[in-house]
């Protein structure tokens, strides 16, 4: 083993690395489905971090066995929490994918920029605003939103 590289370092780097890879993926990817996948990666990292918070050296799974010398057990609470978090994640991912199927059917593709532009156009049209100013007009001609539409998600990630 390389000196200085301990088990804890490896585990923390893995957990936080997954989170960072996931968040960066959400910010950087230009395809909506890849954003979902990136989110899944980030969630895996967060879940790993949660499990690590209850880890104990030389301890066994928290299940009582019929024996007298019960060894030390790891903390059961993070395991219960992580079970909950995983199931929540699965539900949200399934919903995200089903929404993506519909977006793909309605807008034709899943490119982030195009979907955002078509969404803006549709909202404006349904509100009855004449859109004689194109999306590419100088910034001052457009309503100043705190986050321009096509970078909205990415700015969210910068938080």
């Amino acid at each position: 083993m390389i000196p200085g590289v301990t088990l804890e370092l490896i585990l923390y780097v893995t957990a936080l690395g997954l989170v960072i890879i996931g968040l960066a993926g959400v910010v950087l990817s230009s395809h909506l489905f890849r954003m979902v996948l990136a989110l899944v990666i980030a969630e895996a990292g967060a879940n790993l971090m949660l499990v690590l918070s209850g880890y104990r050296w030389d301890a066994v799974a928290p299940i009582l066995m019929q024996r007298t010398d019960q060894p030390a057990m790891v903390d059961p609470v993070p395991q219960a929490m992580v079970l909950t978090a995983i199931v929540i994640g699965v539900g949200i991912q399934a919903l995200a994918v089903s929404i993506l199927i519909r977006i793909r059917q309605r807008y034709g593709n899943l490119k982030r920029r195009e979907v955002a532009e078509k969404m803006d156009a549709e909202i404006a049209a349904s509100a009855g605003i004449r859109r004689d100013i194109s999306q590419d007009a100088p910034l001052g001609e457009r309503p100043l939103s705190p986050l321009p539409a096509h970078t909205a998600e990415s700015r969210g990630g910068d938080a």
Binding site: V19, G22, L23, V26, L32, M35, V36, L39, A42, E43, G45, A46, N47, M49, L50, A85, I88, I92, L95, A96, I99, L100, R102, I103, R106, Y107, V115, A116, K118, M119, E122, I123, S126, A152, E153, G156, G157, A159
Partner: peptide, 22 residues
């Protein structure tokens, strides 16, 4: 269609939020 796209954006943002909260 706009509701789908808007919800997807909300879902991703709130997903980031839930990762950070966790």
């Amino acid at each position: 269609s706009a509701a789908y796209a808007a919800t997807f954006r909300y879902l991703i943002l709130s997903g980031i939020g839930s990762v950070l909260t966790l």
